[in-house]
């Protein structure tokens, strides 16, 4: 059985538990054993923490990696931001022995040590590479008849191989297994605006989020499929904020794990889709009928 240490991150369990529930259901169904990483902390968050203190970011991140290493397992993340932080820390420590020494000198004061023995993978990679397309296809019992737009999220493009489309291609292929029709809208690579929201709300909403949503709707998308919780927050709350500016869009967001769970035959109640802040009911009606 494929086995990974599951790094849940902050936003998924605290803000969108439906994604956690759906992921656990999907993992169980496809035969992926996920072991909870007890005592983990924020990855830490990839934007501010790095700017404030690089050593601090490395040590906190290495502590999380060390927890997985203690379990003898590679680490799997559901969140794009956590993926980037942990992946980059892992690569830095594996390739720079002086950084590894510096970080371990601090960790050793707390009985921890990171040896650089594990890999960091996004759940998309685990599904595609370790489980395989065929196994996922076998589990799809209720193909979904909806038209969706993909939003991969900027951090999913980070790749050690240099092929930035490697994981987005995987995500698209996995999504298509659920029976949905994928609407290409030409702005897939554009950032959703979540990071710029911290600095300039107007720019973030009108120059990042709005052009994307507009093109998605023009392409006939009935929902956005995402994997990043921060992007999900931006799409869901961003549409509410756009409404205050007189711009009305109501496109629901769905995480790829939730989409898989629905196509595996789980109901929206099973995975508590109602916990979404966006107009998810419309999508549920379309998928499950009244």
């Amino acid at each position: 059985m494929v086995k990974y240490a599951l790094f849940l991150g902050c936003l998924i369990p605290m803000r969108m538990p439906s994604v956690e529930i759906a992921s656990r259901r999907v993992f169980e169904r496809i035969g992926l054993e996920s072991v909870d990483l007890k005592g983990y902390t924020c990855c830490p968050e990839p934007v501010f923490s790095r700017l404030i203190d690089e050593t601090g970011q490395l040590v906190i991140s290495a502590r999380n990696l060390a927890l997985a290493e203690e379990l003898g397992l590679d680490i799997m993340t559901l969140c794009n931001g956590c993926y980037e932080t942990l992946l980059e820390t892992n690569e830095t420590l594996k390739n720079k022995s002086d950084e590894m020494l510096r970080v371990n000198r601090i960790l050793e004061n707390y009985g921890k040590k990171y040896r650089g023995l594990i890999k960091v993978k996004h759940a998309i990679e685990v599904l595609y590479e370790d489980i395989g397309i065929e196994k996922i296809r076998e589990c799809v019992t209720k193909p979904l008849k909806i038209r969706v737009a993909m939003h991969y999220g900027c951090h999913l493009y980070r790749d050690l191989s240099g092929d930035i489309m490697r994981k987005p291609r995987m995500m698209k292929e996995i999504t298509s297994l659920t029976g949905v029709e994928i609407a290409d809208y030409g702005l897939e690579r554009l950032c959703c605006g979540y990071p710029s929201m911290q600095v300039d709300e107007e720019f973030s909403l009108t120059h990042r989020l709005l052009p994307k949503i507009k093109r998605m709707v023009e392409a006939g998308a009935e929902a956005v499929v995402l994997t990043c919780p921060a992007c999900t927050i931006q799409f869901e709350t961003g549409q509410v904020l756009l409404r205050k500016r007189g711009i009305q869009y109501e496109i629901p967001c769905i995480n790829i794990m939730e989409l898989l769970a629905l196509s595996f035959g789980f109901s929206s109640r099973d995975i508590h889709l109602e916990l979404h802040r966006g107009p998810i009911l419309r999508l549920i009606k379309k998928v499950e009928g009244d």
Partner: peptide
């Protein structure tokens, strides 16, 4: 789900 995830 557990009330809280297995956070530190």
């Amino acid at each position: 789900l557990p009330k809280t995830p297995p956070f530190a």
